[in-house]
């Protein structure tokens, strides 16, 4: 009888097999769409519009990947994730790529097993308070109750900043940005802290935006970018160069408006390589050669996407600032496509 149980264990042991990690690109092509993780709703970055279609800066990145792979920007399915759920969703392969204003940090890159493919928005953490409080600087916030979203670098920076300045605070932690905003508006806390872009986004949907002020202090570096799982370099490359192509396109003044014309007529070898009229960059990625053309034609370059979702004239009204091209006073700098 002992023998029997040994045999049972031994048989089970021999059947051990670990799930083979197939190439993500093949999986995506087979199922016919990209599963893209986005926020549960942050105006300008990712939020469903009146018709229920997802829109925003991060959504544009998902659409660009879809355009690069399928030649069609709409082959994306969106999974709304909270800050808390997002990493597990990516680790467990529930989503193929996470484009969810996520800060690139060491531990996320190394310890969590992810690969950040670049930075699509240079941000920093800020504070928003009600104007009525009369607070002019974050250094006056000692003793305040601070509303913050759970599972973010924001929580850590907040603790660091207050400790470094010898100030005290009470934190109230919620799962989604909407809950944080609700608690802030109901005056459950004095301060709303998150990345400044997030503050502007939230202020844009408040009924009375003028009654709230974003304090001048920026207390952290928050390079936000899309990320994929470690271990599938081809998929990582596609994501990385999708982003770089959008940035490079802006630098080369290639936009959705003139891309057809340039494809046919340009003499610029850089643009020719990018649009696939010369060279084989697309094929090297395992895509068709007009991958970047499809991105620019269907989604636009980085600047177009920024202007459409975040820039001046939108409800968020964010200046390009750090996110301008390197030759225009910003730090946006794509490696050459060659």
């Amino acid at each position: 009888m002992k023998k029997a149980s040994f045999i049972a264990v031994a048989t089970a042991a021999t059947f051990i097999a670990t799930a083979a990690t197939a190439a993500t690109l093949d999986d995506v092509k087979a199922k016919g769409f990209i599963q893209c993780g986005v926020t549960t709703g942050l105006a300008g970055f990712a939020a469903p519009n009146n018709e229920g279609k997802w829109e925003g800066f991060d959504v544009d990145f998902c659409r660009a990947m879809s355009a690069a792979i399928f030649g069609d920007p709409d082959k994306v399915k969106y999974t709304p994730t909270t800050a808390k759920e997002r990493f597990t969703a990516l680790q467990s392969a529930e989503i193929d790529v996470l484009a969810r204003n996520t800060t690139w940090t060491f531990s996320r890159d190394v310890n969590l097993g992810f690969e950040f493919v670049g930075v699509n928005y240079y941000d920093g953490q800020g504070f928003m308070v009600k104007k009525a409080l009369g607070v002019k600087s974050a250094l006056e916030l000692s003793g305040a109750r601070v509303c913050v979203q759970s599972g973010t670098t924001t929580e850590l920076n907040l603790a660091d900043y207050f400790t470094a300045n010898g100030m005290k605070y009470d934190s109230v932690v919620f799962d989604t940005a909407d809950e944080v905003r609700e608690a802030y508006l109901k005056d459950t806390c004095d301060v709303y802290t998150t990345d400044q872009s997030g503050l502007y986004a939230q202020r844009s949907v408040i009924a009375d935006p003028e009654a709230h002020i974003v304090l001048p202090e920026v207390i952290s570096k928050e390079p936000l970018g899309p990320l994929v799982r470690h271990g599938d370099n081809q998929w990582g490359d596609i994501a990385r160069w999708t982003l770089n192509a959008m940035i490079e396109a802006e630098e080369l003044n290639v936009s959705s408006a003139n891309v057809d014309d340039l494809k046919a007529n340009t003499k610029n070898p850089g643009i020719q390589r990018m649009l696939g009229t010369s060279g084989d960059l697309g094929q090297q990625l395992g895509l068709s050669n007009d991958w970047a053309y499809n991105i620019i034609k269907n989604v636009g370059n980085y600047g177009e996407s920024f202007a459409r979702n975040l820039g001046e004239g939108t409800a968020l009204n964010i200046a390009r600032g750090l996110n301008a091209q390197w030759n225009k006073g910003g730090i946006l700098y794509a490696p050459p496509l060659r």
Binding site: A83, K84, F87, T88, Q91, S107, R108, N111, L112, G113, S150, G151, T152, E155, L156, V173, D175
Partner: peptide
């Protein structure tokens, strides 16, 4: 199971 999990990734 919320913040610690998320900051460390040890789900």
């Amino acid at each position: 199971a919320g913040t610690s999990l998320n900051q460390t990734g040890q789900a």
